[in-house]
Amino acid sequence: MKVVVDEEHKGQIPATINKLSFLSRTLNNRTALLYLLPSIVLFSVFVFYPMFKTVYLSFFLTDLQGRPAEFVGLENFQYLIQSESFHKSIKATLLFVLYTVPISIVTALFLAIIANEKLKGIGVFRTLFSSTMGMSVAASSVIWLFLFHPSIGAINRLLSIFNIQAIEWLVDPSWALISISITTIWMNTGFTFLILLGGLQNIDENLYESASIDGASFWYKMRRITIPMLSPTLFFIITITLINAFQTFGQVDILTKGGPAESTNLIVYSIYREAFINYQFGTASAQAIVLFFFILIVTILQFKFGEKRVFYQ
């Protein structure tokens, strides 16, 4: 290992050779510790400790202050397995992921491809396409709450022009989750678009040029150049979108409050309700553990299967 002696320690050189060599040998370790200390302390207090505490709490029944009151072992998890409400929550979460992730990616990819053309004024379109990235979940949800309004909202007004009967977007159990998904897809577009556009711009132009000389069609170039070269970026954005979908909360809180008939009670909303409305910190923690495993599985699967199909430059 390279030994680094900085200004202050140079003066000590003649003093004690032994002590110096120990000091300078550990100097890097001590400096590293000092620089990493803020991160280590914060991660310990706000990530690792609460993770263990969540596991711990999931084995207990708690009082109203969240203090563990009675050890119940795995009973909280058994309760969840039997709870119909939790089944609904898991089903809603998985359906939500299925509705939002593929459509978000495909939409954003389409937008990125058309916005990657070198045309006059393309910058304006790029800015417009990325605009939903700046929209907060609260602002977006309130806007969509109005768009979904059964009588005066724009969507049903538009449908009425085509003589389609008004839909009770947020009140009808068969439409509520779809409404939340539409809102989410809209919100995802900006960020997903921005990342994919960046990926497209990193592809070497020469590849397209030589393909064009060979007379390759648009779809051929898409399949043989764009998608393979974009795969690392696609891989990254699919993982992020999946994980975000599992963490959805704000849309549910503002648009439906988990209803109607618990059809939109996504897992994070379910945890929130259990912990901060019903004060059942034990069962809420057990649900949090389930959420943790969901995300862990997604990450592992992504790395296992995604990696193989990814083409690295």
């Binding site: 993770m51 923690s285 943790f292």
Partner: peptide
């Protein structure tokens, strides 16, 4: 590895802290 721990999974103890 902290990136794999969703903030929502730890929010209960964090709130208590």
């Amino acid at each position: 590895s902290t990136m794999m721990i969703p903030w929502e999974a730890t929010m209960i103890p964090n709130f208590l802290t």
